[in-house]
Design a protein around this nucleic acid. Structure first.
Length: 490
RNA sequence: CGGGGUGUAGCGCAGCCCGGUUAGCGCAUCUGCUUUGGGAGCAGAGGGUCGUAGGUUCGAAUCCUGCCACCCCGACCA
């Protein structure tokens, strides 16, 4: 088969770029740093959205929508927050164009905005400014709102899905009467993300707390799920934040508690973005293309009819069409590709590139024997299946694929997680093997910075499940209560 | 923003150093015939302001200057 992708071990990032484009997920647009998400890619994103949205609803959240534009003054109200985002904000300064004397159009200098508007890089400020009007009493709490939206962060260097100037995401913003409640919310939503990553994306993750330097701008505590990609680099797949009373104080959001005392509200926020698409690609796919977990695949099964002439074409199409109807009726997402404009071999390769979990092929031999050829994407196994077993085998196999993908990714993550006790050993293994490292750290920002400057690796998180294990910092020898997760990251 | 590179058909490239017929190749597209169980073959066809503006020259894709765009490597980041 003709290779259309760069092999992973030849050039991993080239492989990723090729794959996203060849699988028809997304492409670069006329706007620098912004991508076009194509229908196939968007369909995967819709599957993610649907699953997450249901999980949000199941945990008591409701959706709302806040403006794309944020008055500049809002940003300056929370010092850490403004500093965190100032360098990557797009700003709207004018509201009108006019015809230029030289032909074409130009910005009308007379249409300058009184107050410039920031295109949201995140919505804490506009939302907390709004919450002020919604909250007077403890009876108004909690507020559990999520929004699905686009945000803009003017990045220097971009990559499809992994880092784009504009991206799609959801951001949850909650308001609570107590710190405990807000913290519990942040922790709960991280669990939701971990469950989604593992059960839907088949992507194992490590849950933990960020160090103070890696914290979200304006948060008191940031939690994340970290996944290990096939090239040995970590990817932060979701975050939640305990915001304390920072935004409530900045926007003067207070409530009267049960004792009749005025208090500032406690907050959390949490989000995942289209970056999950990149994580999905880099977790399971191979040199022949995308490999999708069945629960997120736009099509779980694709059927390709085989024929040599018009008569056979009609027969194979009818046969395949029946199979399609049976599978659809059984509740599977199934596509019949009976186009006569492409040959079977081309279709096989294309659907492998697009990661369809199961492919069925049916031709004269199958009609004769009442069978169908079934091929599974993850293991490349093929078998001839009597059609009476179709629904049962497909159901079983989709579950097997979903499980196999997770098991393989988990085994890979575990095999590439190394406990190290010396800084020298860490540096050597980081270059030769990569992956996650569990090491002792003295808890200081200085040591953290030194590791980052010298190795480009960062402390990804302090894992929740790290056991108490007193030791000595691998860099300074100072005491450390437990190991932290370190890796080079996207 | 620093360093490097590239702009030629929808995509990928050659041609440029050393200026000179009608700018070429692969893939893709279109037509016809043969094909169709792993990315088909043959024959034919269409498609170009050579990034852009100026300059040098009898003559510029080719030489010179400015500008623009994009890519790669750094610093920053979900």
């Amino acid at each position: 088969m003709a290779k259309v992708l760069t092999a992973r071990d030849e050039n991993y990032s080239q492989w990723y770029n090729d794959l996203v484009i060849k699988a028809d997920m997304a492409e670069n647009s006329a706007v620098r740093g912004c991508m076009v998400i194509k229908p196939y890619g968007y369909s995967i994103w819709e599957k993610m959205q649907a699953a997450l949205d249901q999980m949000f609803k199941d945990t008591g959240h409701v959706n709302a929508y806040f403006p794309l534009f944020i008055p500049k003054s809002f940003f300056s109200k929370e010092a850490d927050h403004v500093e965190g985002f100032a360098k990557e904000c797009a700003v709207v300064t004018h509201y009108r164009l006019r015809t230029s004397e030289k032909g074409g159009i130009e910005v009308d200098p007379d249409a300058k905005l009184e107050e410039e508007l920031i295109v949201r890089p995140t919505s804490e400020t506009i939302i907390w400014n709004t919450y002020r009007n919604w909250i007077q009493s403890y009876r108004d709490l909690p507020i559990l709102v999520n929004q699905w939206a686009n945000v803009v962060r003017w990045e220097m260097r971009t990559r499809l899905f992994l880092r784009t100037a504009e991206f799609l995401w959801q951001e949850g913003h909650t308001a609570h009467a107590t710190a405990q409640e807000a913290m519990a919310e942040a922790r709960q939503m991280l669990e939701v993300y971990a469950t989604f990553a593992q059960e839907w994306m088949a992507m194992p993750v490590i849950k933990g707390s960020k160090t103070p330097t890696e914290r979200f701008a304006g948060a008191l505590d940031t939690f994340s799920i970290e996944a290990l990609m096939q090239d040995g680099k970590a990817l932060q797949a979701g975050t939640s934040h305990f915001l304390g009373q920072n935004f409530a104080k900045a926007f003067d959001v207070r409530f009267t508690n049960k004792q009749g005392v005025m208090e500032h509200v406690w907050a959390s926020s949490w989000g995942v973005s289209t970056r999950l698409m990149g994580a999905l690609v880099m977790t399971h796919s191979d040199d022949d293309g995308l490999v999708l977990p069945p629960r997120l695949a736009p099509f779980q099964v694709v059927i390709v009819p085989i024929y040599k002439n018009d008569e056979q074409m009609e027969q194979s199409r009818a046969y395949a069409s029946e199979l399609r109807a049976r599978l659809a009726k059984a509740g599977f997402r199934v596509k019949l590709d009976d186009r006569d404009t492409h040959k079977p071999g081309w279709k096989f390769a294309q659907y492998e590139l697009q990661g369809v979990p199961i492919r069925l092929a049916a031709g004269p031999r199958d009609i004769e024997a009442q069978t169908v050829e079934l091929a599974r994407r993850d293991t490349r196994e093929k078998q001839s299946l009597p059609i009476e077993k179709l629904e049962a085998v497909v159901a079983e196999m989709l579950e097997a694929i979903q499980k196999n993908l997770f098991d393989k990714a988990l085994a890979r993550t575990q095999a590439n997680t190394t406990r190290v006790d010396s800084y020298q050993e860490f540096k050597e293994l980081l270059d030769s093997k990569g992956g996650f490292f569990l090491a002792h750290w003295d808890g200081t920002a200085e040591t953290e910075k030194r590791i980052k400057d010298e190795t480009k690796a960062t402390i990804r998180c302090i894992p929740f499940d790290a056991p108490d294990e007193p030791g000595q910092c691998m860099v300074t020898g100072q005491p450390s209560p437990r190991r932290v997760l370190i890796a080079r990251a996207y």
